[in-house]
Amino acid sequence: MKRIEVEQRSILIGLAGSHGYGLNRPDSDLDFRGVFIAPKRYYLGFDNIEQKDTGWDEPGIFPFIDGNKDTVIYELRKILQLLAGANPNVLELLWLNKYPVLTEVGQYLIKHRNLFLTKKVKHTYSGYAFAQIKKMETHRKWLLNPPQKKPLPADFGIEAEEPLSKDELNTFLEYLYILIRGRIEFLEEAEQLYKLLTADIDFKGVLKQYTLPTETLEYTENLTHGRKDFIRLLQKSQSYQIALREWKAYLSWQENRNPVRAEMEKQSGYDLKHGMHCIRLLRSGLEILQQGEVIVDRRIAGDVDDLKAILQGKYSYEQVMQMAEDLVAQMDAVYETSTLPHKPDLEQINQLCIELVEMQGWS
Rank of each mutant, 00 (worst) to 15 (best):
Q267S: 09
N222T: 14
C278R: 01
Y270E: 12
L281P: 00
D229A: 02
D332Q: 05
A301Y: 06
G226W: 12
R257E: 12
D271H: 09
K248V: 14
C278G: 03
S316Q: 05
Y250T: 09
E325F: 08
L282Q: 02
R227S: 08
Q290R: 13
F230K: 00
T224M: 14
E325N: 09
T220E: 07
E265C: 06
Y317E: 11
G269C: 10
Y317V: 08
G285M: 06
L282C: 05
V320S: 03
L307M: 11
G275N: 04
A329M: 00
D332W: 00
H225Y: 11
I279P: 00
I279C: 03
R298V: 02
L244I: 10
I279M: 00
P259Q: 07
N256S: 13
K236A: 10
F230M: 05
G226E: 11
D229T: 00
Q330Y: 00
A249Q: 15
S252D: 09
Y317L: 11
G302D: 08
P259I: 10
V296Y: 12
R280N: 01
P259M: 07
T220N: 15
Q291F: 08
F230C: 00
C278S: 08
E255M: 15
Y219R: 08
V328Q: 01
G292F: 06
K308G: 04
M264Q: 08
D297G: 08
Q267L: 08
S284H: 04
I279Y: 02
I231R: 05
Y240S: 15
G313V: 06
L311W: 01
Q241E: 14
V304E: 08
K314E: 13
